[in-house]
């Protein structure tokens, strides 16, 4: 069974040099909408594939910063531990996803029509060389908008043109156009996480080996319970340490980790997590070079945390430059992103 079959027909594998798979591109979607006869409810903007994405305009996506409670797993209070340098790389593969959102039109003048592209891929490492797992990346393209606002003719034209439509419903503040935008973006993010999750579950089901996942694994369903998936989170908009311990976290030495704690989020799996300093900070951000590692709680033990920390530290080389997030990024993840940019963008 191919990944395509195992992951459902909604997802299509993208191949190099093949006609663009996974739905209509930004340009194609805009062209179809622009070609509608008569007056359409959609006014199409002059955009193409090079248009700046919402992610590039606002990387944080409006996520607020916070300090969240966490239950200690190793000791009663947050402590630091030096990690022995890794000898043998522990990860067999890397998983990452991308998303790209572009406003290509307006519905009725106030509701943005967002074209979203999401993709995810597992890159397997064999003899130090990365290659794509199974048949390729999962890629999906769609227009994100409240479908109730769409007239029948436009909807039919989109379906005939191979444009997938995703209903963002009436979430968000209808009085503020940015609320609609946030809704669309959230939907696209979910689509990306869904793609990542499907791949992670497929990988863990196949029992391939330790998988380095870019970001949290808590939303990965079965994969979040697998001892194979290791999430490495680079952003720290939510800190899982008590406020008095934040200076301790900021001063964590390179090659050291904190004691582990459990993260229990709503509608997500409970996972074990700890902070690990990969590189010294850049001076401007105290959390630069810091990652938060996640594994299934059932797989946790202090020794396992040390081993996984070893593996993550071993991925510091080769350095992920020129990516600006290189201090906290593994080269394998950069490779996933480069691959996805090549086949999905």
């Amino acid at each position: 069974m191919t990944a395509d079959e195992s992951l459902g027909s909604a997802w299509r594998m993208a191949e190099s040099y093949a006609p663009r798979a996974g739905g209509a591109s930004v340009r194609a979607s805009a062209a179809i909408l622009r070609g509608l006869p008569g007056a359409s409810v959609v006014s199409v903007l002059g955009v193409d594939a090079t248009a700046p994405s919402l992610e590039s305009l606002d990387p944080a996506g409006g996520t607020p910063v916070s300090v969240a409670p966490a239950s200690p797993l190793e000791s009663g209070r947050l402590e630091t531990r030096a990690v022995a340098p890794a000898v043998t790389p522990g990860f067999t593969a890397f998983l990452d996803g991308i998303q790209r959102s572009v406003v290509i039109g307006q519905l009725g003048g106030l509701v943005p029509v967002v074209h979203g592209t999401v993709g995810a891929v597992v890159r397997v490492r064999r003899e130090r060389v990365l290659s794509t797992w199974r048949d390729g990346a999962l890629v999906a393209r769609a227009l994100y908008l409240p479908l109730t606002r769409l007239d029948a003719a436009t909807r039919a034209a989109c379906e005939a043109g191979g444009i997938a439509l995703v209903d963002t419903g009436e979430e968000g503040d209808p009085a503020h156009p940015h609320g609609r935008l946030a809704s669309a973006r959230l939907a696209i993010q979910r689509a990306r996480e869904e793609a990542e999750s499907k791949l992670a579950m497929a990988w863990c089901a196949a029992g391939g080996g330790p998988l380095y996942v870019d970001g949290s694994i808590s939303g990965f369903g079965e994969a979040a319970l697998s001892p194979l998936a290791v999430g490495v989170v680079k952003s720290h908009r939510t800190l899982y340490v008590p406020a008095p311990d934040v200076p301790l976290l900021a001063g964590l030495a390179v090659g050291s980790r904190t004691t582990a704690f459990a993260v229990d989020a709503r509608r997500r799996a409970r996972i074990a997590s700890w902070y690990l300093r990969l590189r010294s900070g850049d001076g401007a951000d105290p959390f630069s070079g810091l990652v938060r590692v996640e594994i299934a709680e059932s797989a946790f033990s202090p020794a396992r945390a040390d081993d996984v920390s070893d593996w993550v530290l071993a991925e510091r080389q080769p350095v992920a430059l020129p990516d600006p997030r290189w201090r906290a990024m593994a080269y394998g993840i950069r490779d996933c992103e480069e691959y996805l940019r090549a086949v999905a963008d």
């Binding site: 080389q317 080269y331 394998g332």
Partner: peptide, 11 residues
């Protein structure tokens, strides 16, 4: 020599 020991070969 450390570059040669990297876990992954650069693309």
């Amino acid at each position: 020599e450390r570059a040669g020991r990297a876990a992954t070969r650069r693309t």
